Simulated scan of single mutants.
Amino acid sequence: MKILVSALEVSSNIHLKALRPHLPKVEWLGVYEPLNARDKPILSPKNFSVMGFKEVFGRLFFFYKALKTMARLAEQADLVLLMDSSSFNIPLAKRIKKAQPNKPVLYYILPQVWAWKAYRAPIIEKHCDKLAAILPFELSYYQDKAQFVGHPLLDEIKYQKTEVGGKSVVFMPGSRKQEIERILPIFVQVAQKIGGKKVLVVPASFQGLDLNTLYGAHLKLFEVSFDAHKSLFEASFAFICSGTATLEAALIGTPFVLAYKARPLDFFIAKNLVHLTCIGLANIFYNALHHESPGRGQTMLHPEIIQDDLNAPTLLEIYETLDREKFLQESQKIRTYLQHGSAQVVAEWIRHGLRA
């Protein structure tokens, strides 16, 4: 079987890596991180790693060419697997279905229509054959093609705390250069005020790169780790840029504060387009657990310090005062809510040509 996969994000490729052992005989085409010598992606996800409205606008021609190339490549595939990245993958699904109406298309890691652009849900359903929802509350936005399959992080995370404590403090300033430039200097100020072992978690995809160039002279303050899950498990507390890492910390049971700062223009646009009370995935799920609108509730599992509020004194105060015992107890409710991993269910669908 040949599968055209469009996995443009770091997190999507982590989820794809967990899925692939369940599909050992598949030949993979498209955009993804290669895992062995047989893998021949046409483009790297790194080619799509842009942030902010200005950067996206500047690369529109590249995205257009990539769409055309991927749509043509779909002719060679038995099935198409789309993962997250709605701005690229929804137009790709439209192109593929227009040219090949009978080509099976599976969307795994659905766009966050519950956060904004809910009108995309019927568009996604029209151009895809099956939708693998990793959040239970996503189902209410679709008619009949979506099914909850579990959450991929429960396939991937092998650690879970049973008691409060740890031997280090973890800092995770993001996976994009722009994020690191904005957030790391504040994390450095925090690290200089905290005693003991301090660990900087670096994305595994950065291995082999010049970390001193990426992170600057203050890199020597930290022990560097490429293993986020192990480092979070061993930590007593974490300072985390927004993203999948916040949910990873919650599922492991490590207390943390979400710390995020975008470019002023991007923040202004997003604030006026997306009316959310929280941005952390764990908080969004925690809203749902308390029968609140996900992302728009008031019940929070962890603090979120965003934009102009983000500064070292505020982060240090949270570090000193956050109730670790309560966090550990409440965070495990997220695990129960998400039930189980998703890779086995999705692989079964694929093996049966989406007829499972």
Rank of each mutant, 00 (worst) to 15 (best):
M172F: 12
P173K: 03
G174N: 06
S175T: 11
K177E: 15
K177W: 12
Q178S: 15
Q178L: 14
E179T: 07
E179C: 14
I180V: 15
I180H: 07
I180M: 13
E181I: 14
E181W: 08
E181L: 13
E181M: 07
R182W: 08
R182G: 00
L184E: 01
P185D: 10
I186W: 01
V188L: 01
V188F: 03
Q189I: 12
V190K: 04
V190H: 08
A191P: 07
Q192N: 13
Q192A: 14
I194N: 00
G196H: 02
G196W: 04
K197C: 02
K198S: 08
K198V: 04
L200P: 06
L200A: 08
L200D: 00
L200K: 02
V201D: 09
V202Q: 10
V202L: 09
P203G: 07
A204Y: 13
S205V: 10
S205I: 12
F206D: 13
F206N: 13
F206W: 05
F206V: 08
Q207R: 15
Q207K: 15
G208P: 05
G208V: 09
L209P: 06
D210P: 11
D210N: 14
L211I: 03
N212S: 13
N212Y: 11
N212L: 10
N212D: 12
L214W: 03
L214I: 15
Y215C: 11
Y215M: 07
G216W: 00
G216C: 02
G216Y: 00
A217Y: 07
A217P: 04
H218D: 15
H218M: 14
K220M: 06
L221V: 02
F222K: 03
F222C: 08
E223Y: 05
S225Q: 04
S225A: 10
F226K: 04
F226R: 04
F226A: 09
D227E: 15
A228T: 11
A228P: 04
H229N: 14
H229W: 09
K230F: 13
K230M: 11
S231D: 03
S231E: 01
L232P: 01
F233V: 01
F233D: 05
F233P: 02
E234D: 03
S236E: 15
F237S: 04
A238T: 02
F239P: 07
F239R: 00
F239H: 02
C241F: 09
C241M: 14
S242G: 10
S242E: 15
G243T: 11
